[in-house]
Write a protein that binds this DNA or RNA. Sequence first.
DNA 1: CTAATAGTGTCTCTGAGACACTATCTA
DNA 2: TAGATAGTGTCTCAGAGACACTATTAG
Lengths: 219, 219
Amino acid sequence: MIKQRILVTVDNIIFTITQDSLQILLIKRSIEPFKGERALPGGFVMEDETLQQAAYRKLADETSVKNAYLEQLYTFSEVKRDPRGRAISCAYIALMSRENVMIKPWDDAEEVKFFDVKKLPKLAFDHKKIVEYAIQRLKWKMEYTNVAQYILSKKFTLRQLQDVYETILDQQIDVRNFRKKIEKLGLVKETWEKEIGVQYRPAKLYTFVDKNLKIVEIL
Amino acid sequence: MIKQRILVTVDNIIFTITQDSLQILLIKRSIEPFKGERALPGGFVMEDETLQQAAYRKLADETSVKNAYLEQLYTFSEVKRDPRGRAISCAYIALMSRENVMIKPWDDAEEVKFFDVKKLPKLAFDHKKIVEYAIQRLKWKMEYTNVAQYILSKKFTLRQLQDVYETILDQQIDVRNFRKKIEKLGLVKETWEKEIGVQYRPAKLYTFVDKNLKIVEIL
DNA sequence: CTAATAGTGTCTCTGAGACACTATCTA
DNA sequence: TAGATAGTGTCTCAGAGACACTATTAG
């Protein structure tokens, strides 16, 4: 009765952060269409898994991280977005700390690597649009929730936390005011440890109090 | 090569507002499964239309409104959510002013009507969960954007605007502070008209300045 | 006039922003 | 000690919240 034939895929926008740049993971396509071009890692959804499970499965295919933060972004459905036929893509944002990531080789890609979001190559399909939307959502989440924890290591200095905000929001923040705000929100607590191996006054290490996503106005 | 068989549907959560209650449109299912139960209006996506277009088409099927505000909410994909087989549903939120709505009879439903969100009947499929999520999103949008305009008539009094906020957010707001905030945001402008037909001091009528969705902190 | 709602004045207190300052570490 | 970054004190000003007040209409 229903003759509908629409393929369902997931695509992951995997964010991580380095010194001073926000990065996403891209693969190089080894097959047509868009062979040789960069694209978001993703693939078809299986009939016995949810979209979220498919996104997790794909994430595990490409990286060593299994328990990353994952959030549905948007479902893209332009009729001509895939030249092979009608396909919609549910995009997922993943956040992980760089130290926890180990990139795996992947059967469908010649190369998998992180790119600075400010220096992205040309992307296959409608992935440019997807990435732009993901960055916008990420910025938003940074301002209004405690997602930052998922992109930082367990223990971190307040300076590192501020760097994450400054890098993702792409703006400078006053040190004093940032600390006042973070302290007042009660999102983090001090540990008794300090930074080691630095050639100046070592900073205290902090951890997040609440592991769950919380809505709070940070900036 | 790809043997995937997943059906793609859309469901609309159509919000409107009356005196003092937030309401959504529900149909009564005339066919199995869940025959006789209430459900969100929706249906299968066609191969030559986007999800948004499918949602608009369905909206036009059920109501007389053609240019309502429509926003993708989330794609629900639990494996067992539809007893007929694997189907995912992309849910859309629609907002409309009550005066513009005329409900049409619908071939797949014995009855179509608005229900107070605080007095919802049992819902088919996973629609209860979808509605809850939609209400949460709507509250959020009310606080941080100018969406209120899409659920009000073109011209309105500040009291009516405040009523919309109080009803949706389900909380009282101080009259003075609400007006100060709205004025400062510059979202609305006075017209030279006033309310008519009331038995007390008539209020000035206002309109929204910007027809597009804007992110601003209102409360 | 009264009843009813529209609409305003203003005080307090919190917190954002700016910016100069002090503290503590390594070498 | 110098050099570097961690971390703090404090002033100003905008705005959220509380609440009492005045204005304007119908009848």
